[in-house]
């Protein structure tokens, strides 16, 4: 069982395949991906694409309901309308998680409406994935700051600190409401993360779908080559992602 916790329904895919995930799934199938959390892409680039893209991602996921887990986004800059979009995405569209990319979306984690969205996510029982590893809005310690303020909300560092900030991601994950998705740090960092962070709150992801490049094969090779006990690898790939959904529910 391999659950990829970081994929996108990319702008390029939507432009070419118009909501049909067959070719996207064919690549996932090649690598034995059982399920995937499907994040938006257009919706994290333009605020005026947000609602339409949430609809698109939900529809794409609905065409493979046992394989694709829809994830939605919103824009805190849209204030009440942003909060309404979160509610609509979860309650009407069936999104199982939220995804924010504060660097691309251009808002600070100190934004008061983001705070309200974090509170709403706890109420709606959905985890929040954050792009992380990038200053000045997406550092692991900044997300840990949110986790301190919103202790009933479940936060996932969707890149576990990327290339240069994974040590800070380990520190962030000392908080019980912070999870790490191994998607970006190099192999040795993955090994260290698995030694030091709570093995129950580690996920794996490939960032597949942002463009047409197949990133799944590379990141699976890295994960498989990593000196991490097989039992832990199985947990990370197949068990923890289901617990993430259950723990938020």
């Amino acid at each position: 069982m391999i659950i990829d916790c970081h994929t996108h329904w990319g702008i390029a895919w939507q432009e070419r395949d118009r909501g049909d995930p067959a070719r996207w799934m064919a690549i996932a199938d090649q690598h034995g991906i059982t399920k995937a959390f499907l994040y938006p892409h257009a919706g994290i680039v333009r605020s005026d694409s947000c609602a339409v893209d949430n609809d698109t991602v939900a529809a794409v996921a609905a065409s493979a309901p046992d394989r694709l887990i829809p994830v939605a986004t919103a824009w805190p800059q849209m204030k009440e309308q942003g909060l309404e979009e979160v509610r609509r995405a979860v309650e009407v569209l069936g999104a199982r998680a939220l995804k924010f990319h504060p660097w691309l979306q251009g808002f600070s984690l100190a934004d008061p409406y983001l705070g309200r969205i974090c509170g709403l996510a706890a109420e709606l029982r959905v985890p929040i994935f954050f792009h992380d590893g990038t200053p000045c809005y997406c550092l692991p310690e900044q997300i840990a700051g949110l986790a301190r303020r919103f202790q009933a909300t479940c936060f996932v560092l969707a890149h576990a600190g990327l290339v240069w900030n994974w040590r800070s991601a380990i520190e962030a994950a000392r908080r019980s409401n912070v999870w790490l998705c191994l998607c970006g740090p190099p192999q040795r960092a993955l090994e260290v993360i698995c030694q030091r962070a709570d093995p129950d709150r580690i996920l794996w992801g490939s960032d597949f779908g942002f463009g047409f490049a197949d990133s799944i094969g590379y990141w699976l090779s890295v994960f498989r080559a990593a000196r991490i006990p097989d039992t832990m690898k199985e947990k990370i790939l197949g068990v923890n992602p289901l617990h993430l959904l259950q723990s938020a529910l």
Binding site: Q187, Y218, A225
Partner: peptide, 10 residues
């Protein structure tokens, strides 16, 4: 930091 064989193979 990376596995040499993985990097070259990929």
């Amino acid at each position: 930091i990376n596995d040499l064989a993985v990097e070259w193979t990929e």
